[in-house]
Structure formats: C-alpha cells, structure tokens
Design a protein around this nucleic acid. Structure first.
Lengths: 146, 146
DNA sequence: ATGCAACCTCAAGCTAAGTTGAGGTCAAGC
DNA sequence: GCTTGACCTCAACTTAGCTTGAGGTTGCAT
C-alpha cells in the first residue's frame, strides 16, 4: 500500500494555493487537524486538500470560519470522507446560497420602491425596519442591529 | 427663513439610530462633512439624516465604507441633494446588487455540478478557477485571489 | 555528518468598522 | 453666573482573518 498518504504543510499550500501561515491559522481555529511527526512537524492527509478547497468555496459564499467549521464537523473524523459525505454538506451549503439570493432579491425590490418614492427616510423606508443581516458580519452599527 | 437648518451630533444620532461614536467615525472616513461652531462642536445639515440612511442601506448591501464614500461623492457639495440626485446613486447601487445576485447564481450552479460529480478538486472545479471576488473583502487567502 | 530548505512557535502588526474611557470644554437653563 | 448634560479629542481595545518577523529545530540529500 502507498505509504505516502501524508503530505507536509508546504505541499498542502502548493496544492491549494493557500499560504502556509493561513493553513496554520486554520488549524488553530479547528478547521484542520493534522498529525505530528516525532519532530513536531505537521502531516496532513491527502483528503485535506479537498477540505481546504471546501473552506475556500465556503468563504466565497460569505461564510465565516466559525460557520465553516460547523459544516466541516459533519465530516467523519479519522476516515477519509466519502463522496456522499461531501455531497451532504454541499447540499446544506446550497441552501445557504439560496437564502442569500432570496434576501438580496428582497432588498433589491425594496430599493426599487425607494428609487420611486425617493424616500430613504428612516421612518418609512422598508429597508431599515424589516429584514436584518444579509450576511452582514463584524461589528457594524450595533444600535441598529441589536 | 428657518434658521434651524443645523442639527447637533446627538440629534443626528437619535434620528438615525447610529451611535454618536460611529458618526464621528464616518466623518473621519470622509462620509460626512459637518460644519463647526465657534466652540468646535459639529453642526450637521438636516439632509445628513438622509445621507446616513444611505450609508446604512449600502452597508446592508455589503458595501464597505470606502465604496460608499465613492457613491456619496456623486452628491453635490454644499447644496441639499435633490430627489433626482438620490435616485441617480440608488440606481447605480441597484446595478451592484444585480451583479452580486448574478455572481451568487453562477456560484450556485457550479456548486450543483460539484454535488453531482463530487469533485471539489482544485484542478477541475470551476468554483476556483473562474470568477473571483463575490464581494469578498479584507485580507483573505491572498495567494488565491491576487 | 553536514548543509540548508522547510519546518516550528510565539509575538506583533494589519484592515475594517467601530466602541469605550479618560480628561477636558461648551452652551443653555435657572 | 453657575451647573449640568452634551459635546470635544485622543488613545486604546474589539473581532475576523490573516501576514510578518525573530529565533530556533528537523529532516532529507549528498
């Protein structure tokens, strides 16, 4: 059997295009769980390439690392994830995209109304009083959001 | 003529729901340009209420303050913006939303393909090699994006 | 057995979008 | 004319998602 099931962090970096420092950061955040050699160097599974790929895609979709970790937690620890495993969480992500698209569409319609009436006024405008979030993350104007 | 065309920062805060500290921050970033009294206190125009409203809406749409500033720069300095002024930049924003929706749709379709083939593999997956951005901002994995 | 690239940790720095607090000033009502 | 709440500046802190650098170790090839 091929003993080279393990790859170094540099290798993983090259295969995914993600900086070594970022990979270490992902480990720190619990998104990756490499083994260690006797000399304390990380050894990743080949399937971690796919795992990192997933992280990148999910980030493109606007998910935060914490959310991504939750998705990844669905994957089996230890054994290599199967096609079915990946399909399951991909499907869950599709739902999230759909939700985002719905929200954007709703917001666009409301903006259309605002263009019409020129309101942009706090009291009346639907854009304020309804529908939060929209993938908004980080601090932001708390008084409005909380 | 009504001399009370000016409002204090506290008043603006109450009318918009935005914290005083945030308003000062927006000024620092060039999004607001209040006048000053002899005693160095800020005095805003009433039309700044609308200006702040716009900032809030644009943030909901995922724009950063820098981008928002560019939009606001379209507004006439000095005179109060007219309905037409506001409609012009609202329409420009609509384009941006439409673009975001288009990108999300494209990504979703590609994800659907990935679900089918189970790929998620860097070499093949469309999700990587095509179509950047998607509203992605901040540092992020540079190697992939630059 | 030695050289050197690639690895390690830990601390500090960066951007965005603010908040919090200290210490001081302004202006409006009584 | 004085008190008091609203205002001022400036510096430091926050979270996310990293990067950069210093200083030290590993492991593979020769």
């Amino acid at each position: 059997m091929p003993k080279a099931n393990f790859i170094t962090i540099g290798h993983l970096s090259k295969r995914t295009g993600v900086a070594v420092s970022a990979l270490r950061f992902y480990e720190e955040k619990g998104l990756l769980h490499p083994l260690r050699t006797g000399g304390n160097q990380r050894r990743f599974l080949k399937s971690d390439i796919r795992r990192v790929s997933f992280i990148l895609i999910a980030q493109k979709l606007g998910l935060g690392l914490a959310e991504i970790e939750e998705h990844l937690a669905q994957l089996p620890e230890g054994r290599n994830p199967t096609l079915t495993d990946w399909q399951k969480i991909s499907r869950a992500m599709r739902e999230q995209i759909d939700e985002k698209i719905r929200l954007l569409n709703r917001t666009r319609n409301q903006l259309d109304q605002c263009i019409g009436c020129g309101c942009l006024s706090l009291a009346k405008c639907q854009l304020y009083n309804k529908d939060d979030q929209l993938g908004l993350k980080g601090p932001g104007p708390r008084a409005v959001l909380d």
